[in-house]
């Protein structure tokens, strides 16, 4: 009588390019998920040896400690400019600017718009968690109306400080970009879509097509003062109506 033995096959493990170290992100923070997706894409495209990651000031300034590729720190808001400088010297490299909402839409708005407008052949990964995480939860350009933060303690008041900025739609007014998509890492389905978007954004660069912009709605449980699962639900219930998910451009 044949003996039924069960063979095990690893079907979900650590991406080779993701360092086997604990990360400093808060429990339930979306950065950890996005780093993993980025690492998976780098592995699958086989571009670890040509990738250069630009990490500006923000919770993810230490991203190069977790993703084993050449890394360059950038001043707050300046990642697209640093990435431009790198890409112009190494056109064959895969240059990624991994930025938060304060970095990309507040202090670095000009760099964001002009790198996109020049069609720099880089890939911008924009983690939108509607708050400044690193500095303890201040209002960001993507903070929602009425959302309470350390610097909008009574809730963001549009009459005083305006409305959340929609980066994808902003970038969509520019002719040069080839790929613009917004996704979310608040659910398994959303994470898988996010991975596809990151993959496309990197492949566009490998194939020298042009500038790719991926906005990722992400949880900040600590900054929002929510349990991680509550934060994930909040992304779907409150953020996506303001920041509609989907592809805006794919040339």
């Amino acid at each position: 009588m044949p003996v039924e033995t069960l063979q095990e096959k690893l079907v979900y493990g650590r991406p080779q390019v993701l360092a086997d170290v604990p990360n400093h992100y808060c429990p339930g923070c979306g950065h950890g998920i996005i780093h993993k997706l980025l690492a998976q894409c780098i592995d699958e495209l086989g571009i670890q040896q040509t990738t250069i990651l630009v990490a500006p000031v923000g919770c993810s300034v230490l991203a190069y400690n977790y993703i084993k590729v050449d890394g360059c720190e950038a001043a707050h808001g300046r990642a697209p400019a640093v990435a431009t400088g790198i890409k112009r010297v190494h056109p064959e490299a895969t240059v990624i600017a991994y930025q938060g909402d304060g970095d990309l839409l507040a202090i670095g708005t000009a760099e964001t718009i002009h790198a996109a407008n020049r069609g720099e052949k880089i890939t911008v990964i924009f983690v939108n968690n509607a708050i400044y995480g690193m500095t303890g939860g201040q209002m960001a350009p993507t903070t929602l109306q009425a959302q309470k933060t350390k610097t909008s303690p009574y809730g963001r008041n549009p009459a005083d400080v305006g409305y959340p900025i929609r980066a994808c739609e902003l970038i969509n007014t520019l002719d040069a970009p080839v790929f613009i998509e917004r996704c979310a890492v608040s659910s398994v389905k959303g994470i898988l879509k996010t991975k596809r978007a990151i993959m496309k954004g990197l492949r566009n660069q490998v194939e020298k097509k042009g500038y790719s912009f991926i906005e990722i709605l992400s949880m900040c449980p600590t900054g929002w003062g929510m349990e991680p699962r509550e934060a994930a639900a909040w992304v779907d219930s409150d953020m996506t109506p303001v920041f509609p998910l989907g592809n805006l451009r794919d040339r």
């Binding site: 095990e8 079907v11 990360n23 992100y25 950890g32 998920i33 398994v188 898988l192």
Partner: peptide
């Protein structure tokens, strides 16, 4: 997939 800390591996 959803684990932010690569704390879970899956075997089939």
């Amino acid at each position: 997939i959803i684990c932010p800390d690569m704390a879970i591996r899956i075997f089939r």
